[in-house]
Amino acid sequence: MTFFKVNNLKVYYPIRGGIFRRVVNHVKAVDNINFELKRGETYALVGESGCGKTTTGRTVVGLTKATSGEVIFNNLDLTKCNRKQIHESRREIQMVFQDPYSSLNPKKTVYDIVAEPLRNFENLSKSEEREQVEYFMQKVGMSRDSLFKYPHQFSGGQRQRVGIARALTLKPKIIIADEPVSALDASVQAQVLNFMQDIQEEFGLTYLFISHDLGIVRHMCNRIGIMYKGKFVEEGTREDIYENPQHIYTRRLIASIPELDTDQHQNSELLRKNIEEEYQKENDKYFNEDGSVMDLKPVSDTHFAALR
């Protein structure tokens, strides 16, 4: 039985033109993508802004409507099932947002923020609710004193932990984390990443980790899908992607990671230059004539790349 699977997902937005605003074309934000999450793994969607990774995440939790395709979870297609089923599945798939400053309601106490999903989904008594909230706040390392404070009284890392506590209260199976640390400073970022790994073990969570930072992705994720212009250009395990990248775009992304080892700079600069040249010259090897991405072909059992 598959745990979670996305089949031929498309999200198109119409472009209108002319006097009568007829639909003249579509922006293909997500264009026919397939991927599967295995229970307990961390799967990364990687790409640059506008590649469709965030739209994919939002579609999976139901914040954006799919144009076509399937999102299979618990043997149900979330894009087609009824309100009640969506409501039920929503508690099992939660989202953590990028910006801990704007994703928490500033007028609510941390207690109310964390308790809100419980109030939406479960009929708990006041004391049960309190118990649950305190349990999860303690899990994310926040003291009891902080329960009745407001988001602005916390630092960025603490706020992101509140965001995660809120996502945890319904004991979800999947957490979609959209750039969860990119708004945070390096030391705080480390704190949140460590913590995400801890709770993953403890609660048996599966992460869909959306990020543009290949350094963090290498640290956190088992399998990786690289997106470009709404499509997958490559998919594979961490080793496949980082040790043996096939597609020029993947190689370009990896070569762009700033290198901390100053001895490597000459090499990496040269590598970047070579890749850039190949990117210009051998474009037809990796892209169709109209510049679109090709279909994925298997490289190995776990590794797929969009090559001719």
Binding site: A186, S187, A190, L193, Q197, G215, I216, R218, H219, L260
Partner: peptide, 15 residues
């Protein structure tokens, strides 16, 4: 505290 090739899979240092 930065993730890198060398501390892959390990916990990151936290201040």
């Amino acid at each position: 505290s930065l993730p890198s090739k060398n501390n892959q899979g390990e916990k990151l240092h936290v201040i």
